[in-house]
Design a protein around this nucleic acid. Sequence first.
DNA 1: GCAAAAGTGTTTTACTTACACCCATGT
DNA 2: ACATGGGTGTAAGTAAAACACTTTTGC
Lengths: 242, 242
Amino acid sequence: MSINMSEKNEIIKALIPLEEKHKTNLTVDCVIFGYDQGDLKVLTIECDMDPFLGMYSLIGDFVKETETTNQAAKRILKFCTGNDDIFLEEVQSFSEINRHPYGRVITIAYYSLVQIGKTKMTDNAGKHLQWTSVNNIKEMAFDHKQILDLCLFSLRRSLRDSPIGFELLPKKFSLKQLQTLYEVVLDIELDKRNFRRKLRTMDILIDVDELQQEVSHRPAKLYKFNVKYYESKKYNGFKFDL
Amino acid sequence: MSINMSEKNEIIKALIPLEEKHKTNLTVDCVIFGYDQGDLKVLTIECDMDPFLGMYSLIGDFVKETETTNQAAKRILKFCTGNDDIFLEEVQSFSEINRHPYGRVITIAYYSLVQIGKTKMTDNAGKHLQWTSVNNIKEMAFDHKQILDLCLFSLRRSLRDSPIGFELLPKKFSLKQLQTLYEVVLDIELDKRNFRRKLRTMDILIDVDELQQEVSHRPAKLYKFNVKYYESKKYNGFKFDL
DNA sequence: GCAAAAGTGTTTTACTTACACCCATGT
DNA sequence: ACATGGGTGTAAGTAAAACACTTTTGC
């Protein structure tokens, strides 16, 4: 006696207890942003799934029974970049019925910010990871372009009202680097003197008393973000705002 | 031949195809805010599940195979309030392993804003729905207090930078009503004249040329929110900000 | 000494805050 | 006429925007 696939599925469904009936496939997808030489990048892989073969895809995985969605996202980040302790923020779920060719898959989108220099890219599992300029991505597999766009929107919003830009820069950076980051990601122009004054009055940078190396012009002073000071101030009515 | 429950579960698990292995129970939970006489309220039911019996609970349900999470939330809202077309916003997922006594259940939290006067409370399915003052809720079933707190945080943020306060008021309202709403929800004091000037310069209210009825003092003028005008302006660099 | 980017203050303008009295209605 | 909340403008202070030249380094 043999049964076909859809008969088998029917039998399985009948066996599954009531409280299992509503179960759904749940994944997380990570928009991993990096910043390099005036260019906002996102970590992509080539999609190996049928109607989207070869297209850019985000990095995601199923949420396991023993982990939270946050832990799933952190696991993916660790896998892709080699780092724990990465800035991570949940953005939104995506649950259109036919968003995935395999069947119903609901995903929760996260974005994270990494310093490209600190990531050891593990070209693992045969999948080729690469940093792709956000501006060069016109389409992606599944609904991943939509996910990317929303995460970018969310990043832009957060960039203005919390000090997360530093997550994309090396620990020590020049004021010019910081300003360019803001200009590139937000797609705006900033006045050098006003930008610097604002940072000065916010008082969240530490002058590390070092200079840029190997530039063919006057080297800039380097600073680092004063995390502790900011953390202590932010619960005392202080508002980051750039 | 008879088999016990855990044996049965093992058999079922073995039958389930690979891509089903990661399936999880997914629900949505709705924080339905209403505003009444200077008091922010939330729609609650009594929990009928064991360790939380009798405690306040949010309203939620499983996400069905044929609906998006948004549609699930809208279905719940329709069921509870009788209305479609309700302001609805996804906030965050909650996925702690043991957040639910039945087993692994991941939920996506939504908050929505309704005009209490417009809701026909359907005390359906034997569950008693009631409006409870947010300030009176010290604990809730499951992790629902945490969900409520986060939704309230999210509401407060949105209240300042988008014109959603109107969703909680009747179509026609006085400036005082609007100001009190802001004061109550944000827990701040506002200056009457400055508040009014700000609204005047934003130019998003229409004077409906009616007066308050049945008050034992000088009746206030009534206004309505100029949705169309706001929608046309917001893509032209205009920024709501209160 | 010249190219290239770093660094630095002042003035104007717009926005925010603080504040007190008269007005319209019901009783 | 009085109690109650509705309605209005101005002045001072603070934050944002606009703007140009000097300094340091490598070549």
